[in-house]
Amino acid sequence: MRNNETVRIPVATGGAVTATLFAPGEPVAVLVVHPATATPQGFYASFAGYLAEHGIATVTYDYRGTGRSGSPRDHRDLGMRDWIGADAPAVAAWAAERFPALPRLAVGHSLGGHVIALGAAGPELSAAVIVASHVAAVHTIPSFLERVRVRVMLHVLGPALGRLLGYVPASKLGLGEDLPATAMTEWGSWARMRNYFFDDPSMRAAERAATVTAPILAVGTSDDPWSTPSQMDALTGHLTGTTVERRTYAPAAAGVPMIGHHGLLRRSMRDAVWPELVAWLHAHAAKATR
């Protein structure tokens, strides 16, 4: 039997995030799903429910100023570093407090993978899966047309609309959920840098990545227009304090025409990919309880 519960989790720097707990009757581990930029927690509901069906209590959430965690206009001064450095640790701490005796796991999608790679997914993490997360510099996007589109969105339209409206109507730009203006500005700034936030001294990204000790499974797809296998490796290469296992899924092998940046966590991957992820998580949760 599974119960879903909506919770409000205070953030140390102010405000709160809205989260959903998918709880099995007798969980064997607790896991937090750290979301991608502009991706609402509802997107992860099927995956979270699947994890709960397999004994893993799972928490999904929205970063402040997105989805159910407040309007982007009211949180216009929040940047991505605030989501990574304050929101994600708050949710991880809440999950650990709610299930203190259970192994702690994490799944990070895109920006959520940066949460894990920068050591912000909580202390005493037993293992984590990074999904479609990479060094997200625009110059690494293989397609010329996609590079142009992303540059226009991140460096022209997004910042201009943020200054005009106090938030970025990303939903109208094809970028997902609406975003706080500062988050868009910071995203665009990092995307200009050759090595993304690793070139931002204020982030201390390489130093933080080197502190991660939990085993990592980094998964991506062969048809992701942004998170290419080489750029995923560029991210995980900074995880020098742990072991990283890499897997790349191709659409043909998964029995679908395309997977893309979000596809691994869609319901269509329930039979082709999710059992492998759950098996890996269960194996590491079991090691943590020995």
Rank of each mutant, 00 (worst) to 15 (best):
R2D: 11
T6S: 02
T6W: 02
V7K: 08
I9S: 09
V11E: 10
A12I: 04
T13L: 12
L21H: 04
F22D: 11
G25T: 12
P27E: 01
V28Y: 01
V28C: 13
L31T: 10
V33N: 13
P35N: 06
A38H: 04
Q41W: 00
Q41R: 04
Q41Y: 00
F47A: 01
G49P: 06
L51E: 06
E53A: 02
E53M: 00
R68L: 12
S69H: 15
S71A: 12
P72H: 08
P72L: 08
L78S: 11
W83H: 11
D87I: 07
P89V: 10
V91N: 00
A93M: 01
W94Q: 04
A95L: 14
A95Q: 14
P100A: 01
A101P: 00
P103V: 09
R104Y: 12
L105S: 10
H109F: 00
H109S: 00
S110M: 01
L111H: 12
L111E: 11
L111I: 13
G113D: 06
G113R: 05
A117N: 11
A117L: 10
G119E: 04
G122H: 07
P123S: 15
P123V: 14
E124R: 15
L125W: 05
S126T: 15
S126Y: 09
A128T: 10
V129K: 09
A132I: 12
V135K: 09
A136T: 02
A137R: 03
F144Y: 12
L145G: 10
V150K: 09
V150F: 13
V152K: 00
M153F: 13
L154M: 05
L157I: 15
G158D: 13
L161P: 00
G162W: 12
R163M: 14
L164G: 03
Y167T: 05
K172L: 13
G176D: 10
E177F: 05
L179F: 02
L179V: 05
A181S: 11
T185R: 15
N195Q: 03
Y196H: 06
F197S: 07
F198D: 06
F198Y: 15
S202W: 09
S202G: 11
R204A: 15
E207S: 15
A210M: 07
V212G: 02
A214M: 07
A218E: 04
A218M: 03
T221A: 03
S222P: 03
D223N: 07
D223S: 07
P229Q: 04
Q231V: 05
M232K: 01
A234P: 00
L239P: 11
L239D: 07
T240V: 14
T240C: 08
V244W: 11
R247A: 07
R247P: 05
T248M: 10
Y249H: 02
Y249E: 03
A252L: 09
G260K: 05
L264D: 06
R266M: 13
R270Q: 15
W280M: 06
H284D: 10
H284A: 07
A288N: 12
T289A: 06
